[in-house]
Design a protein around this nucleic acid. Sequence first.
DNA 1: TATTGTTATACTCTATAACTATA
DNA 2: TATAGTTATAGAGTATAACAATA
Lengths: 165, 165
Amino acid sequence: MPPRTAPPRTAPPRTAFLLAQLGADAADRFAERVAELGLTPRDAGAIRVLGHTPGISQRELATRLGTTPSRIVPLLDSLEQRALVERSRSERDRRNYELSLTETGQALLAPLRVIAESHQRAVLAALTADEQVQLAGLLAKLSAGGGLSPDAHPGYAGAAGSSGA
Amino acid sequence: MPPRTAPPRTAPPRTAFLLAQLGADAADRFAERVAELGLTPRDAGAIRVLGHTPGISQRELATRLGTTPSRIVPLLDSLEQRALVERSRSERDRRNYELSLTETGQALLAPLRVIAESHQRAVLAALTADEQVQLAGLLAKLSAGGGLSPDAHPGYAGAAGSSGA
DNA sequence: TATTGTTATACTCTATAACTATA
DNA sequence: TATAGTTATAGAGTATAACAATA
């Protein structure tokens, strides 16, 4: 019988890949969950941001969501058609819109929070409560250095699919 | 002065989002690294799989990489043009190709491994060696239950962009 | 002239289904 | 008839650059 294996001193080789894979899976599952509300993840992100900071402009929203102003236009068109968001011209600078949630839009904030919580419970379900706290701490430490913005994914445009490493 | 804060008993609310965000960032950074070799992440994945299991068919490769046979065609066309991969008709069933790396393709395995290692070091750099091992263990536990395949990302098609939750 | 929002355009990635050649 | 590979096509997502209105 071999001796009891000591804990490894370095992370196994595929840890970074595992992180990417689990992150992609979590994002996919979140997309499925918000689809229950008829929303895309980006819809949900916009609603969340406007819930926190009503009155911002389209450019500001684009920055927060990590996308371009031209992408914001059809996104808001769609949300406005569903009466979730309102565009009102700014009085002080008539070039700007001031974006805000309608009452219907605000009514989505609570169910979105519920979905986010249950989603997180599902994603972390394989871990004990202590391990979940541990993981949260490690991920927070990982994100502390990098310039990740609080509301946006970098997006997977360049990196989607299998990397194998 | 408030009392010393006890460690939290549940993970903070944005942990699942953080996982997705860090995973996307890691994938992006890996894409930048393999681009140094003139490869996409998918190229790298295909080369890695063929390094491990030469002789497989295009359909088999598609399954391993989590994509469709029709996507494999241009992928292999590109790798074949660069003389990294060979398609040879199977003798036993002439419908099949048997895929393999050329010598040039095999020569990429080592630098790919180097890149993967240095990529992982960079991704985990904010953690101590012990914490890296800890994180690896937690991620392994997370991935144990779900049906994640060892070579493929699910892909971010449905979930790209900002979710905000 | 600079800036906000908008439109036009093009490019990438993707999957589905029809097609061919073998079996 | 069933299967491997291929092609054609269409759809989603993306960014860039040109444009109108306002400052």
